[in-house]
Structure formats: structure tokens, C-alpha cells
Computed example of a mutant assay.
Amino acid sequence: MTAYRASLTEIDIRRLIQSNDEDERAAAAHKLCRNMDKAELDEHDRAAAHKILRLLANDAAELVRRAMAVTLKASDLIPRDVARRLAADVDSVALPLINFSPVFSDEDLIEIVQAGSVVRQTAVAGRPRVSRDVAAAVAEVGAEPAVRALAANDNADIAESALGRCVDRFGASPEIIAALAYRQVLPLSVTERLVELASEAVREHLVTRHSVAPETAIRLASFARERATVDLVDQASGHADLSQFVATLHARRALTGSLLLRALARGQMALFEHGLAELAGAPHQRAWLMIHDAGPLGLKAIYDRAGLPPRLFQAFRAGVDTWRSLQAEGVDTTDDAFRQQMLERFLTQRPNAPREDLAYLMERLDQDPVAAPARAGVAA
């Protein structure tokens, strides 16, 4: 307390009250506010500080009020009534407090959002902590910059319904879709909607970062049915129920020869096996035996029974032979490096595959982050 009282010198008080120079009063306000915020105040000292702050809040000079707002923007020293008054001030005074001050209640912040000022809505949305009720208000009535700031703020508690409202209102905004996609936690329902709307790069992030069920690929068929499904299986195959997955694909008429060829070329033998079994109406174990242990005619028999296009059989044969060759070399067929090596070696055989499938596989070869090591291994 002694240090606090010593810092409030007579000269400071005189400069604050009597000076006609705005810069001088602003400098005095900054010093006083800084010292008050650092001091340990008892009840009497805090009451005295509040009197000074009310005096500053009524100063005619914007520079003085701004000095107070900036210095105490993150402090709990400002009385709530003073903070509310300053929140209605000009932007240079109001925004620091709106963006940081802990003294505002949720009701205060919702009132600010509903008032409609874009910059103030954005300041609320970017606060160090945004409660669920405040986030819902921003999602419902906030302008695009405010909703973008909210979506990018991982310290904002945004309910699933509010996230959905953001998508409802700004699904055409790439910036908002990307900001939502990069949140640390997303409900599945929102993730599915974002995948439909996102750019390719953001879509890849969603599939990799968030636990999207394989069945999601089917519901997203409108943008890239087969491609999205195979890409999802890349990261889901370790724990997905492939029998159920392919059954669902088949029921929706999405279990095609093109999809299975793409999967096989990328080393997804399990998906290929389950897919053939589903199409042929055979148990997985029987399909596995026909593919791997029934001699040169086994694959042709299960392939024909599955009803896949005869013109694609040689491409499938090349895929199975490539997989067996790598397995015989002792390559670990479960890791990403193998999948890349499989894809590269399959393409070097110039398989008689449809142009769109080859284009897809070449694109994956380009995109895969382990492409360089894989090529080095093949070259060796």
C-alpha cells in the first residue's frame, strides 16, 4: 500500500486534473493506471482507484480515455459500469477493452454483438475466452469478419448448433470454412458438411485430422465419390470394419471396379479382398484363397464372379502381381512407404487402366510426402 500511495504523487494528480495539454494528461493517466494495476490494493485503496478511473473515463480527451483503456484492457480493476461506458465510446477506446477486459459479463458481450458494429463483434469473437452463449450470439448475428475470427479462436466454446449456424450462413466463404476446419475439435456432423464445402487442401486436413467414419465418403459422393473413399480408407484401414464398409458401399452402388483398382494400386489389398468378396457374394476367407492361393486361375474366377469389367482384368492382375512381388522382397506391406512404393511400381508397368484412374494415381504419386524416399528405394 505504501508503494501504491507513493506512486500517486501530487504532481501526477495535478497533471491529471489541471493540465490543459492532452498528451500530458494521457501520460499521467497511463502512469497512474499502470501503478494501480501493479499494486496490491486493500478495500480503501481500491475505492480510491475507482474514483480516479471514473474521473479518467469522463475526461473530454479521447487520448486520455484511450490511455486508460489500453493500460487496463486485461485488468479486473476497472469497475463494470466504467467498462460498459467505455465500450460505448469511440473505437480507439472501446476495442481494447471489448477484446480483453475480464469484467464484462456474457450479457454485456452479447449486447455488444447484437448492437451490430462489425469491428466490435470481431473484438468479442477474438477474446482470450469466449463462452458458449457469446459464441452462439456471434454465430447467429455476427458479420463475416466476426464469424471468421470466432471460427479461428480455439479458446471459443462453440456448440455444435452454433458451428452449424456458421456453416449455414457462410458456407460460401472459403476463409470461414478453412477456419472452422482447422479447429482442434469438430463434431462429426459439422466435419461432414465442411468436407463437402472445403478446398482440396482443407479437405485433406479434415480427413487426416478428424476421425471421420469411412461411411462419410459415401455421403460425400457428390464431389469425388471413389477418390474420397479410398483416401479415407488410407487413414481408417487400421481400425475400420472393412466388411461393413464395403457392404455399405455396395448397397449404395459405390463399390465399383474403378474404386477397387485405385485401392489395389495404392497397396490396399485388404479393401480389394473384401470388395471382391462382397461383389462375388463369397466369404472373405474364400476370396482371400482365390486371390492368393488358388493358382493362376483363382483371381480370374473370383473376378468374373464379382462381375467386374473384363477389360480391366489385366490391370488388376498387374496390381496383385506387384503386391506379391513386394511382399516376396520382405517389404512391410502395412506402412505408408510401402503404399507409395506399390503405387510407383504399379504405374511403371503401364497397366491398361482407364485414363481417369491413371490420372488419379499419378496425382497421388505427386502428393504423397514419402515420394522421394520411395523412389530412392525403387532405384536401389
Results as ranks from 00 to 15, higher is better:
238 G>N: 09
249 L>M: 10
237 S>N: 14
246 V>M: 00
244 Q>V: 07
254 A>E: 15
296 P>K: 14
300 K>V: 14
294 A>P: 05
266 R>D: 06
275 G>W: 15
293 D>P: 03
230 V>S: 01
260 L>H: 04
280 A>H: 01
286 R>W: 09
249 L>S: 01
256 T>E: 04
232 L>H: 03
279 L>G: 00
267 G>R: 01
238 G>Q: 12
248 T>H: 13
252 R>D: 14
297 L>G: 07
243 S>D: 15
300 K>S: 10
244 Q>D: 13
285 Q>N: 11
282 A>S: 12
263 A>I: 06
253 R>H: 12
247 A>V: 02
284 H>D: 08
296 P>H: 09
284 H>P: 06
289 L>M: 11
285 Q>D: 15
262 R>H: 06
240 A>L: 06
231 D>N: 08
264 L>E: 05
279 L>M: 08
267 G>M: 05
301 A>G: 08
242 L>T: 03
293 D>V: 06
274 H>I: 00
302 I>G: 02
277 A>F: 08
300 K>R: 12
241 D>Q: 00
275 G>R: 05
244 Q>T: 15
236 A>L: 10
276 L>K: 01
291 I>G: 02
232 L>K: 01
285 Q>M: 09
231 D>M: 05
261 L>E: 02
257 G>K: 05
280 A>I: 04
288 W>G: 02
297 L>I: 11
274 H>T: 09
240 A>S: 12
271 L>T: 02
289 L>F: 09
282 A>Q: 13
250 H>F: 12
288 W>S: 10
236 A>V: 06
275 G>N: 06
244 Q>H: 13
251 A>F: 05
240 A>E: 09
250 H>R: 07
284 H>A: 14
266 R>W: 08
290 M>I: 00
273 E>N: 04
231 D>S: 06
266 R>S: 11
